[in-house]
Nucleic acid binder design. Sequence first.
DNA 1: ACAATTTGACCGCC
DNA 2: GGCGGTCAAATTGT
Length: 280
Amino acid sequence: MNNTTTLCTKINGDSEKRKITRELLNGHEAATQLKLLLLKNPNGGSSLSAEELVANVLRSFNEILSILSSQNAGIPAEDDSDQCKNKRTATKTARGRGCYKRRRSADTWTIVSLTADDNYTWRKYGQKQILSSIFPRSYFRCSRKYEEGCRAIKQVQKTQENPVMYETTYTGMHTCKSTPNSNNNVPRLLLNSQNHHHDSKVSNEKDYYPIISPLTPTVTQEHAKEDSPSDVGDHKLDPVWSDLKDFEPSIKPSINLVKNFGMDSVHFGTHDDDDDDELS
DNA sequence: ACAATTTGACCGCC
DNA sequence: GGCGGTCAAATTGT
């Protein structure tokens, strides 16, 4: 894969490569054990519990993402919206409406999962019907954007191939200090199972959230340029599990899904676009 | 009353 | 000019 090659060129040093490889393998192994665990035998031949395995998977990928993010750390976030006000002035939009600059080369990470939920609080700011898909694309930004200047945004869209799956593209890292959940690295799939409401803060997502456990997100990094996606690694995967609590009694893991957690489905790619574009 | 979402308009990029 | 991303007023929810 060229993407992988491209990624490796950005890794600083062999030790990090080795670490990434190790973590990928570790995560893969944990996912495999989890698959076995969930498929049939409660103990799956593993000495670890499902929660431990999941935590292991998450930890591995978080570590990787953290490493990757460190490649790009230190690139300062640009201030929102002010400069565009200068640029665009008041000819059309006195308050700067429509005044923005696209973020073409920010870090983007795509997760294909059975849920788009996560533990961050997102504020929906738009939804559009996209030509390439019959399903609308929803746009979210971190609810702490204005409080803490957090620049994380995400796009959520059902996949056409498999409408129960959601493709969530995260752009930029969380610069807010919000800790989405106190159980940051502890999957909650077996916790709080009684309630059945997908009331993440993003209410409209629940319109098409599946009530199926998001067992195996496919993570794709499309860009790795300006911000470090560590937040993505630190927290974003967790959310995936948050909906499990709703589905816990009837988890029916899919082999197909599980296999997505194999290394083959973790795609890290980079786009070499210019990186001066920013959201307004 | 405040917060979050919806939705049409606006704008940049291709 | 079309498409996709963002803004913000209006609407809805808590």
